[in-house]
Every structure is written in structure tokens, then in C-alpha cells.
């Protein structure tokens, strides 16, 4: 080593020793701090470039396992979709069963049935998947989960039954308005229903709910039929009548409750 080289080396060696022994000094700490600041943008760029490169290097070297993993995840995804759909159905069924349990607490024993067929181009009747073997009999009342009357059992076979909805012209239900307590008779007109035989001096409010009064001995008391849509009154008629709006159309139901026994 030449003398000049040795001098230079010794100078840097002493400088380094100074850095090591007085590392906590403010000047050396500041130098470290500023050098770190200068290096940081390059470190960020290098780090990003490195991450990008290592990502692709990993992706290329693991392409086989990635493909296998992807195929497995696709299968798992399909299974999960299947589970979600089953859970959704169970949730719906659970809500219906809760409704049934609620009715049972009120001493109304019901049976849940699914709608399996509908009448051609009208809602006067539909078919359910419960029949004589399930304890279903004619004239049993069919309600929805909101304790709304849908109709009655018209015809029973071994495994299925035909429900006659309240839209049918043969339906007559003794009813009463909930607020003004006005009595009358609900009749089916084929595609709608009316609240008939309202006393001339009584006029129910629009939007008032109508429930079954139970006075006819056929339909149980306290079930909702619909709400007053419009009251019509004319001098040459003995009674007032009101158009009734159904809370839900019969075609909206996929499952119904049949009242087996009411105590």
C-alpha cells in the first residue's frame, strides 16, 4: 500500500471509528437522518420494483399450483353458492314455522302446505301439496302467514287439495270493520271482493281493515280479509257497499297455512 493510500485509509478508518464511538452524537444522528431521507425515494422505487418482480417470479414458478388452487376454489365457490341457496330456503321455511308456532300459541292449529298448482288465468283457486292423509278436510280455512284469509278447502284428494280463494263468487264471509265496528258481508266477485250489506246509516272509513266476525259459524273470528278501498252509497239501494282491496293477491303466495282445529 502506498503512503497516500495508507493516509487516506487511516483517515477514513478514524472517521469510521468516530461514527461508531459517537453514534449517539447529534451531528452523526442528523447525518444518518438526512442520508436516510435521500435514500428513501430510491428505496421505495426499488421495493416496488422488487415486489412486482417477485410477484411475477412467484406467479410463474407456481403457475401449476395456482391453476390447481383456482380449480379447487371454483369448486368450493359452487358448493358455497349451493349452501347459500339452501340456507335461503331454510330461512324462509323457518319464518313460516315461526308463524305456525305463533298461531299454535293462540290455540290455532295449522298445517303448512305449499302451492303446487294454479288455476288457468284466474286466482279463484289453487292446488296445495296437503291432502286427506295430512288431515285436511273440506271447508277448512286457508290463511297466509300474516293471518289473512286466503280461502277455504274446496276439494280434497289423498295428497293434494284444491283451495277456493275469497275471490270466488261462492264465497260469503261475515265481516266487521276494525275501527268503526260496522258489520257486513264480504262477497267474491270473481276478480275482486266487496263488503256488502252495510247498514244505510253506517259508512266505514277508507283504508279501514275488515276482519272476519265469526257470526256465520263457518269462518273463524278475527282474521283479516282486506281493507276498505271505496264506499258506494245510492238512494235507491237498501244497503251501502264498499270495494275491498286485498292485502295480498292469491297468486303472491307460495305456501299457506290450513287451520286444522281452532279451540
Amino acid at each position: 500500500m502506498k503512503k497516500s493510500e495508507f493516509t487516506l485509509w487511516l483517515f477514513f478508518l478514524l472517521l469510521t471509528a468516530l461514527f461508531i464511538f459517537f453514534g449517539q452524537n447529534r451531528v452523526i444522528s442528523s447525518l444518518q437522518y438526512y442520508l436516510g431521507g435521500i435514500l428513501s425515494p430510491i428505496e421505495i422505487i426499488s421495493n416496488r420494483a422488487g415486489n412486482w418482480l417477485f410477484f411475477w417470479q412467484n406467479a410463474i414458478s407456481n403457475i401449476k399450483s395456482v391453476k390447481e388452487s383456482n380449480a379447487r376454489l371454483l369448486l368450493e365457490n359452487l358448493e358455497l353458492y349451493n349452501k347459500i341457496s339452501r340456507l335461503s330456503l331454510l330461512e324462509e321455511e323457518n319464518a313460516l314455522l315461526r308463524e305456525q308456532a305463533d298461531l299454535r300459541q293462540k290455540n290455532i292449529f295449522t298445517r303448512l302446505a305449499n302451492v303446487i298448482g294454479r288455476d288457468f288465468q284466474n286466482n279463484r283457486s289453487f292446488l296445495i301439496d296437503a291432502g286427506a292423509n295430512d288431515g285436511i278436510a273440506t271447508n277448512m280455512i286457508v290463511i297466509s302467514k300474516g293471518k289473512t284469509i286466503i280461502g277455504r278447502i274446496d276439494n280434497v284428494s289423498y295428497g293434494t287439495s284444491k283451495v277456493q280463494t275469497i275471490l270466488d263468487t261462492q264465497i260469503r264471509i261475515a265481516a266487521v270493520t276494525t275501527t268503526s265496528n260496522i258489520s257486513g258481508l264480504v262477497r267474491g266477485l270473481g276478480s275482486s271482493i266487496i263488503f256488502d250489506l252495510i247498514a244505510k246509516n253506517k259508512k266505514p272509513e277508507t283504508g279501514e281493515l275488515i276482519t272476519s266476525s265469526g257470526t256465520d259459524g263457518i269462518w273463524p273470528k278475527g282474521f283479516i280479509i282486506g281493507k276498505i278501498k271505496e264506499v258506494t252509497s245510492s238512494d235507491n239501494e237498501v244497503f251501502n257497499t264498499a270495494n275491498v282491496e286485498l292485502l295480498a293477491e292469491p297468486q303472491d303466495f307460495d305456501s299457506v297455512f290450513i287451520i286444522i282445529n281452532q279451540q
Binding site: L39, I42, E43, S46, N47
Partner: peptide, 9 residues
């Protein structure tokens, strides 16, 4: 630049 590459890459 070399130090940045050494440290971060």
C-alpha cells in the same frame, strides 16, 4: 441508487 437497490431490492 446502488445502496437503495441493495437495501430494498
Amino acid at each position: 441508487i446502488l445502496a437503495g437497490i441493495q437495501i430494498s431490492f
